[in-house]
Design a protein around this nucleic acid. Sequence first.
DNA 1: CTAATAGTGTCTCTTAGACAGTATGGC
DNA 2: GCCATACTGTCTAAGAGACACTATTAG
Lengths: 224, 224
Amino acid sequence: MRGNVFAVTVELVVLTVRDGRLQVLLVRREMAPHAGELALPGGFVRPQEDLLETAARELAEGTGLALPGHHLEQLGSYAAPDRDPRGRVLGVGHLALVPAGSLDTTPVGGHWSPVEETGPLAFDHAVILTDGVERARAKLEYTTLAASFCPEPMTVTQLRRVYEAVWGVEIDPRNFNRKVTSTPGFLLPTEERTSSGRGRPAQLFKRGPATVLHPPMLREPPAQ
Amino acid sequence: MRGNVFAVTVELVVLTVRDGRLQVLLVRREMAPHAGELALPGGFVRPQEDLLETAARELAEGTGLALPGHHLEQLGSYAAPDRDPRGRVLGVGHLALVPAGSLDTTPVGGHWSPVEETGPLAFDHAVILTDGVERARAKLEYTTLAASFCPEPMTVTQLRRVYEAVWGVEIDPRNFNRKVTSTPGFLLPTEERTSSGRGRPAQLFKRGPATVLHPPMLREPPAQ
DNA sequence: CTAATAGTGTCTCTTAGACAGTATGGC
DNA sequence: GCCATACTGTCTAAGAGACACTATTAG
């Protein structure tokens, strides 16, 4: 067969919302190259694996979270000739969204870091992280993906906190409530309500079958 | 280095609008595997090339079109273990949009086919084609990418025909005109007008600097 | 009672969609 | 004149943003 020969890895951008901020799962590399530096979790694709299988396996190994039940999608591939000193390595970035609270214990060998406070990362992982964060921000606009950041069941306020954390903006609670509850299939009401908490108990919802938002929820102010 | 070894190819979904229909550039394979079958243009990534460089080179070889001036973006990677009988080959799909009329001569070794009328394609190229078409359809909603399908300068009607062909819908010319001319930076008016044609001459526009549409142009009817 | 959070209602402004009507060319 | 295409104007309905207000809990 003609052509150059590559090793292929999968890199994971695992995002969650903790303490009101968008955070990413990072690991410290134990082996060369870039030993001791922070990096995205990931690893080599095995002989009989498809890309999504590798990503799901790495997610399970790194966080203990299993599919289905968590959002996982491919971001894109990165193959600059000099991105890995060992030779030509093509990295396929993936985006995973996990609900807050599903990883109360610190994940094995990794830790959470606010996406705006990650220092330099190994390889080109900073670029992959930027692309993953932007993908997540964009998808909140026109899909119901924000619910993937929330445990089930959830309150409308929890969902709104996700939008505020991911976009870094404040959203009017009343207009937000009207928007999400009037979008068919976004949130399915249950009969239950929150029990703890200081104020009036909130109604609990489950994720609905809708995947796209029509019309979308736009984040940018009417740009001048 | 651990891990499996891959060959890496770039596959191109080159789209244009001809005769009021969305069409894709296909080539007939000369060599095994899948000799004689229709396929997307593409080829192996060379030792010192990045993915976008390979895609630009293949686009130039297959169509004679050179970057910059044409839209080219990565779609995603396809790496099912059995997608190529020669062994493990990872294919990176790319989407290219070329203006109608920039390829009046039939491209070397290829031909245009309406996207709804392509028969079976070699490898998993039908999947890549579907993903590319859906990406193009989605991007028309919230970007100014439709202008990449038009030669410069263009009329508002030409731009509307692009939306109608890509989405397969009819759009009210008057509302469309109001929408695109009131979006800052989408179309830049010129002093020129069309000379040939049967009716009133139309004003000619150039592509503006805007890349995103705020608010977007939604394609789906208020779904019930 | 007060504080805190949840949820509803109302008004305005913008914009999409559905039309009618006018303008300017070729023939 | 006629026809074709380009372009403008007007009305209506839907949704976003900006508020005031009510509801239900803990203390």
